[in-house]
Simulated scan of single mutants.
Amino acid sequence: MTEILRVEDLKKSYDGFLAVNGVSFSVQQGELKALIGPNGAGKSTCFNMLMGQLKPTAGRVFLNGEDVTGQRPRDIWRKGVGRTFQITGTYQSMTVIENVQMALMSHHRRLFNLSARAWRMYRDEAMSFLDTVSMGDQADRPCSILAYGDLKRLELAIALTHRPRLLLMDEPTAGMAPTARVELMQLVADIVRDQGVSVLFTEHDMDVVFAHAHHIMVLNRGELIADGSAAQVRANPQVQEVYLGGGMLFKEADHA
């Protein structure tokens, strides 16, 4: 398999406190990999270093074999990394398809052309992305009236517009109803399977993680304590100690 992302001994400290301490891992092409851990484990800090929002104190990040450590978020985005966030960031005053068209104009470097004609640009291409996330029938609806789960689907369509090789998803199902969570992650799994996109995601819903992730990493107090299959992670004594009492890791479920 082709290695898309490699992280080597990544560290981030704040006034001597190590929020991320020596984290190393890789993500392969077409892999759906989860990064889990309790609140404050360092998951978001790690994501922010991968995408360039934070500069590591030490360590290296390689994308397709190229060292991208400390590069600007937009430069990393241009190299094929997309991201979705815990809180959606769509333009509420625009329609669903206009949001995707805006993303396509950015991808094609046409944001300078925001004339009245701009909203006819890339409409067919935008529709194809909306169809991918089962939102084509809502193309002309204002974002302000969408259900939260549909906003999450729209955000995924937007993230896919520049055809990333790696997609970082920070708490993709946060705030969603249980059924909508399952539907969204199945959609992500289908995209990984059909398009060969690699996905690294953080998540608190263990049912979602164990049902869909090919491999799971566990971060605790800034350190990576497990990296393996669902069965390996479930049986790991350190992981059991971290999640002791919750029972959330110990359901007998394999990824789909």
Rank of each mutant, 00 (worst) to 15 (best):
I87N: 15
S93F: 10
N64A: 09
K152D: 04
L130G: 08
T173I: 03
I87S: 11
P142Y: 09
Y91I: 14
R78G: 05
G82A: 10
M127Y: 12
T57V: 05
I216W: 07
D131Q: 15
L111I: 14
Q138P: 00
D15S: 14
S93D: 13
G149S: 05
G59L: 05
V199C: 05
L32I: 12
D140K: 03
Y122A: 02
L167K: 07
S26C: 13
K11G: 10
E241W: 01
T84Q: 06
L104E: 05
I4E: 02
M248S: 13
I4L: 04
Q186V: 00
P73I: 10
M51S: 15
V197L: 11
T132Y: 01
Y148I: 05
A116V: 12
D190F: 01
A103D: 02
E66C: 02
R83E: 05
L5Q: 06
V233A: 10
A41E: 07
F210P: 03
G70M: 06
N39I: 11
G65N: 10
N236Q: 02
G245L: 09
A58V: 09
V218D: 04
T88W: 00
L151Q: 15
L224N: 03
P178I: 14
T90E: 11
N39A: 12
L111C: 10
R120A: 13
V7Y: 06
N113K: 14
F62C: 11
V133R: 03
K79I: 00
T161Y: 02
G22T: 04
G70L: 02
A19D: 04
P56L: 07
N48S: 11
Q195C: 07
R83I: 15
H162E: 02
M121S: 12
A230V: 13
A58E: 14
V192R: 11
H108E: 12
V100Q: 06
S26G: 12
A41R: 08
M206Q: 03
Q240E: 08
E31I: 09
R120I: 00
K251Y: 11
V192F: 02
E252K: 11
L18K: 15
R78Y: 06
I145C: 06
R163F: 04
C46R: 00
N236H: 13
V209Y: 01
A118M: 11
L10V: 09
D9K: 12
T45G: 09
S134E: 13
E31L: 09
T95M: 01
G89I: 00
G228Q: 06
G37H: 09
M176T: 08
L160D: 07
V182I: 13
S115D: 14
F129K: 01
M94L: 15
D207T: 15
S144C: 05
A230M: 01
A103E: 02
R6G: 01
L130T: 12
D75Y: 04
F201R: 02
S128A: 13
G196Q: 04
N99Y: 06
